[in-house]
């Protein structure tokens, strides 16, 4: 058991630099300016990811303008107006790994695989959302603008 655990941590230690190298995260200030796919995401797909309880599961913690979803959480701020609070690059980083901005955040890092503990076999070594899915969610959220004061 001990030997297995040692081996696992050794493998993990060897794997981390390789993963970090594979994932070239270009952080500028508190933002990732470049699209992860090189193109813009699809807001309709993004909306579907947000409300999907297996994929983005955002509404477990957040609320937002999703009238067909009656069970929305209140652990985190509403998504309403997200596109006015942040610019695209800032929001991209917060989706990918919010703990880079706030270490105490309860928000999962949606596009990071290293530095996690006891990840279940089904989920190991893959991010919660793919690069394309991050761009889709981002495209939808950037459209959620705060209403302008009259």
């Amino acid at each position: 058991m001990k030997a297995a655990r040692f081996l696992a941590s050794l493998l993990l230690a060897m794997a981390i630099p390789a993963m970090a190298a594979a994932q070239t995260l270009q952080v500028t200030g508190d933002a990732v300016m470049q699209s992860l796919t090189g193109s813009a995401g699809d807001p309709a797909r993004g909306r579907a990811i947000i409300t999907d309880r297996q994929k983005g599961f955002c509404l477990l913690c957040h609320s937002g303008p999703f009238n067909e979803e009656p069970l929305q959480g209140n652990l985190a701020p509403s998504l309403e107006g997200a596109g006015s609070r942040w610019n695209e690059g800032q929001l991209r980083l917060r989706l990918m790994d919010n703990k880079r901005v706030n270490a105490e955040s309860i928000m999962p890092a949606y596009h990071r695989i290293e530095g996690l503990n006891r990840v279940g076999a089904t989920w190991r070594d893959r991010p919660i959302l793919t690069a394309a899915e991050i761009e889709d969610v981002l495209a939808f959220l950037m459209g959620l603008k705060a209403e302008k004061a009259p």
């Binding site: 959480g73 209140n74 652990l75 703990k99 309860i106 999962p108 890092a109 996690l116 503990n117 006891r118 990840v119 279940g120 989920w123 919660i128």
Partner: peptide, 18 residues
Amino acid sequence: MGQLDLSCAQCHDDHAGR
């Protein structure tokens, strides 16, 4: 722990009742 990177305490201490 886990892919969602949450401890028991973060929900059941810090956000109980939410």
